[in-house]
Amino acid sequence: SIASAIIDLAVHGKAQNRSYDRLALFVDTIGNRMSGSKNLDLAIKYMYNALQKDGLDNVHLEPVKVPHWERGEEFAMMLEPRNQSISILGLGSSIGTPPQGITADVLVVTSFTELHRRAPEARGKIVVYNQPFVSYEETVKYRSFGAVEAAKVGAVASLIRSIASFSIYSPHTGWQDYQTDVPKIPTACIAVEDAEMMARMASRGTKIVITLKMGAKTYPDANSFNTVAEIVGNKYPEQVVLVSGHLDSWDVGQGAMDDGGGAFISWEALSIIKDLGLSPKRTLRLVLWTGEEQGGVGSRQYYELHKENIFDFDLVMESDTGTFMPLGLQFTGRDKARAIMKEVMMLLQPINITSLYEHGEGTDIDYWMEAGVPGASLLDDFQKYFWFHHSQGDTMTVQDPALMNLCAAVWAVVSYVIADMEEMLPR
């Protein structure tokens, strides 16, 4: 019973807690891994050596050009109605302020609609967004486009309520996008608590003044790499089941959850299969992406480089929403492929994780799925994910070794069986 052997090794056997222990050593040694940083270079070298030491096949690096942005020193101070330090995290790609900072009155809004309605009030002000958290997908547009929308109505900077479902005064960073025809203004996230406080003050008609200083700088694109390792297939080696997570992170916390957990259960899947002496018919390929946080930069270049072989890609898998209690897999593919995946999930009955959901997702595998390759993502109990996401709280303390064992078991069983079946998934 191959599925049981994989599960036993991952959950009860010698491999239990291995992905957790490996991740802890990695993040405690390297720290966070921002695109373009020396830390990310060190992380890639570390993984290259670790994967070779693990005895995997074809360990190699594939060059990628990635954005290089550094936040520099930054702070905000509320001057009126009273002095209070405002905790901020500059947003990726933001420009800095002049050296003396920007001091301006604040306009608080709760939505883009309100901003547009009150456009005449925004000129020369710092716009503070206090948008409610609906869902990440819905609310993240304020982080992505808050600066552009504020600049369009003449604001001098924007401060955006963090995209977080819970807060203990924690700002959460993330990437934001300027538009070429709109002036660039500095932009940062603030804690939910400060956004709500300023909204209350504004609703009482209280004047708010803030000084904002940000030393953010954008440098020329940097050299980086996607990190690749394989177990080469014994019958159809050119055909590939791809398992993945991203190695880069934000420059806060340790990037243990986003996406250290996803990267290390993906490595663990190959380790488990190798430890059991299993040899799938197709190649199992581990890819640790670079530059994901800047919008899937590494995975886009990987797709461009390898799309000529798209018909050899059987299934693409990504874990990038945490490695909490696994609930099953999200899957995108034709009905015939879904029916097969449902049967494969039944192999996970010993750990009672057999559900197959709709909509496989993941920035790094989207290109393949849009082109018709079946795709799967790990669905876990990610209720707490956005508590820690892109914040100083994303540390090893978030991770649970027992849950990582279960995630690794799901990842290993599914990837191995699909790679070993006589035929590829129907498209």
Binding site: S1, I2, S4, I340, E343, L347, V417, E422, E423, M424
Partner: peptide, 21 residues
């Protein structure tokens, strides 16, 4: 290449998958 042959029935595929359990 054994790609999308569709010569096997779903029952055949189910049996193959059961072989891993």
């Amino acid at each position: 290449k054994h790609i999308h042959k569709n010569v096997r029935t779903f029952e055949d595929i189910k049996k193959e998958i059961c072989g891993y359990s």
